[in-house]
Design a protein around this nucleic acid. Structure first.
Length: 666
RNA sequence: AGCGGGGUGGGGUAGCUAGGUUAACCCGCUGGGCUCAUAACCCAGAGAUCGGUCGUUCAAAUCGACCCCCCGCUACCA
């Protein structure tokens, strides 16, 4: 049998902020599908990355008073960590600053230009003399010349809806600093999109997978007439435009971030010592490119990206499907960082485990229309679906087997009609979930998984093994044999959606961590020993209001450390009385530090690249004295020394004059 | 303004592309059952003529026209 090959991608998030739950939808959807395909044994690669270029990021960096590089490196690191906690199974999550990406993009566009699809043209654009930058239309604000609305943006008036031009605004000002923009002539490079109209129309019309929202939108878009698209920006932060005469210009983000799908594939295979491996995904005609995006990204994925690929004349695979989700609103309103509407992915995990959110988001995934996240829905999904229906079914089944059958899958007796129907139903639900997922109906797939657990509960109630165990033990054995097969199926079927929980169930069942999709319907054998079950979920006994308060408390904590919290950190002056290198480590020193107590304390510090042992001896430094001890390289590190770090440079924090070791720092 | 999507029992979500059995499912509500299990589980019932009007048809939630309302997009908010 030929191995199916799928490249799963999710839109590259802008990371001027941490993402909110809505931003996570395409990523989470892609993860569900990537996990599903891996279980099916397909050759899968799941890639994405942080989009670190673009004006919103520059503006946010200015606001925070740091460079775009600093801002995006900081956020990228946080986001990578968060995706791990959300169990997003990326094979490669990179950034648009990756050298592989930059090099690939520049070569790519050189080719596109050589093929004659790029031309330059002069235009007058708004320029802010104070910010020293050209302003994208939406960063120019002023009075609408039609309706007089004061907050109109240069691209459109939000009041009357008319399309505007920054030159038309009355009292135009820069939305960043408020000063009056000048109009300056500048040369830009354009991508000759109209040349691809026919090919694109055919590509979109013939694509059977595209969801209706993506197809209709795109066809309409082409019908209305494609226009050449500006590819360059007057900005330093970005990828240099590789066109002759375009020195000092960078590529507009939408002409490089979508190419990240390719460069991230290249980067992955480079790292794995197979530099040509990426071609199997991008050129072999049986490989499929599957993109997950939010609906605002449709034209970039169905029009611009395919057109760019066509412009190379290299026969790249075009996206096989662009699975597009609608918006997730929060209690009826759009998520907004500034107005603090919505839930951010770091906050969410401080409230509840990732699986609670993953399930709620996928069970309520906006597929045909915008949906709402409300605390009411969250409570319903977690308490009712996960805890009561799913969790309790698994718990009652496994507990029964432990209590009455010594923890062994019982030997079934003669199967009656109900038993046979139940076993058939497992296969039926397996097929349904499989069908839903292969058609990208993720919401329906979650429903069918939970429905299987519901069937299980119904079956148990009908068979009443707690009665038959006394009157007809063989019947009880049969019932639990059947029930545990449902649990087995669930332990696989749940994997794409709530992987941590699925893994826990397999641990209860003494099954390996890695399974195949088809294993869901392979019965556990009689006599198979299972473990003790514990509740999989915890019911949330909070009201909607209390949940909102909990979120706000978490948010408040994030912003400010209370004095009490700060006071818990016991910082002391210490004197270094012993230094030794730790063998086999690259950068570790074992420091013995006098902190004013009878016994000196040990700190393992990663500073041997920066300081020689003799430089450190007898120095007064600052330590955190009440840190939880941690073993590093087999040595118990009891305290932590403080140092400032910038890039590859570090500086130890020292008291400004000698003071008795053990003195408190506050 | 144009375009796209949507308006389905009290709340939520399917169904509509290929019109046709009693409009499905979850939550909630009412009544009952069970006691293995996580105050869980199961059964039964009430509750919508599918935004409105007109039309096509033997037959429309499903197709068409018009209208009302909501959301999104319109090229730098998933």
């Amino acid at each position: 049998m030929k191995l199916e090959r799928v490249l799963v991608t999710s839109a590259w998030p802008y990371i001027q902020h941490i993402l909110h739950l809505g931003n996570l939808l395409p990523i989470l959807s892609a993860d569900v599908m990537a996990r599903y395909y891996r279980l099916k044994g397909y050759d899968v690669l799941f890639v994405s990355g942080s989009d670190v270029h673009g004006t919103p990021i520059e503006v946010e960096a200015v606001r925070q008073g740091i460079s775009p590089k600093e801002l995006t490196e900081k956020n990228h690191e946080r986001v990578v960590d968060l995706f791990k906690k959300w169990m997003i199974s990326f094979d490669n999550y990179t950034t648009t600053e990756s050298p592989v990406h930059k090099e690939f993009v520049m070569n790519f566009h050189r080719k596109v230009a050589e093929n004659g699809y790029v031309f330059s043209q002069e235009s007058e654009l708004p320029y802010c003399p104070k910010c020293k930058r050209f302003l994208p239309d939406r960063f120019v604000e002023g009075e609408c010349p039609y309706c007089g609305y004061k907050g109109a943006r240069g691209d459109q008036c939000e009041q009357c809806g008319r399309l505007l031009d920054p030159t038309k605004l009355i009292n135009a000002h820069c939305s960043i600093c408020g000063s009056q923009p000048l109009f300056r002539k500048t040369l830009h490079w354009y991508f000759d999109l109209p040349k691809f109209a026919d090919q694109l129309r055919e590509y979109i019309a013939n694509n059977k997978q595209f969801p209706d929202n993506a197809r209709n939108f795109s066809l309409k878009f082409i019908e209305e007439g494609l226009k050449p698209r500006p590819m360059t920006r007057d900005s330093d932060w970005g990828i240099p435009a590789p066109f002759p005469g375009a020195e000092g210009k960078t590529l507009y983000v939408w002409f490089e971030n979508v190419l990240g799908y390719i460069s991230a594939t290249i980067e992955y295979f480079k790292r794995h010592g197979d530099p040509d491996g990426w071609r199997r995904f991008w050129f072999d005609k049986d490989a499929k490119i599957l993109c997950f995006i939010g609906k605002d990204n449709i034209p970039f994925h169905t029009i611009i990206f395919p057109a760019l690929l066509l412009a190379t004349h290299e026969d790249y695979n075009l996206p096989w499907n662009v699975s597009t989700n609608e918006w997730l609103n929060f209690e009826g309103q759009k998520s907004s960082k500034s107005r603090k509407i919505g839930i951010w992915i770091d906050e969410a995990l401080k409230m509840f485990p990732a699986d609670y959110w993953r399930y709620t988001l996928m069970a309520n995934r906006p597929e045909t229309s915008d949906t709402n996240f409300t605390w009411k829905i969250f409570l319903e999904k977690v308490n009712s679906d996960l805890n009561d229906t799913l969790g309790n079914f698994i718990h009652r089944t496994l507990t029964f087997i432990n209590n009455y059958f010594d923890g062994e899958v019982p030997k079934p007796g003669r199967l009656d009609k109900i038993d046979r129907e139940m076993l058939n139903a497992i296969n039926e639900y397996f097929r349904r979930v499989d069908g839903c997922l292969s058609g990208f109906h993720i919401q329906a797939a979650t429903k069918n998984v939970i429905d299987l657990a519901r069937e299980g509960n119904r079956y148990l109630n009908e068979k009443k093994p707690w009665k038959t165990i006394k009157l007809d033990p063989q019947s009880a054995a049969t019932t639990l044999y059947v029930s545990v097969q449902i649990v087995k199926a669930l332990s696989v079927l749940l994997e794409p959606f709530i992987p941590s929980t699925a893994r826990k169930i397999r641990e209860f069942l003494n099954l390996p961590g890695k399974m195949q999709w088809e294993d869901a319907i392979v019965p556990l054998e009689e006599g198979h020993k299972i473990g003790k079950a514990k509740p999989l979920f915890e019911k949330i006994n909070l009201s909607e209001e209390e949940l909102q308060e909990m979120l706000e408390e978490i948010r408040a904590l994030e912003e400010k450390v209370s004095f009490e919290e700060f006071s818990r950190i016991d910082m002391r002056v210490g004197r270094i009385i012993g230094v030794e290198r730790i063998p086999r480590s690259k950068n570790l020193l074992k420091l013995t530090i006098d902190v004013g107590m009878a016994d000196p304390k040990v700190a393992v510090a990663g500073i041997s690249k920066y300081y020689r042992p003799e430089e450190l001896l007898n120095r007064h430094i600052i330590v955190v004295a009440n840190l939880k001890p941690k073993k590093i390289f087999g040595i118990e590190s009891e305290v932590m020394i403080l140092a400032a770090q910038h890039d590859d440079e570090i500086a130890l924090i020292q008291p400004e004059k000698p003071i008795r070791p053990g003195s408190r720092v506050r």
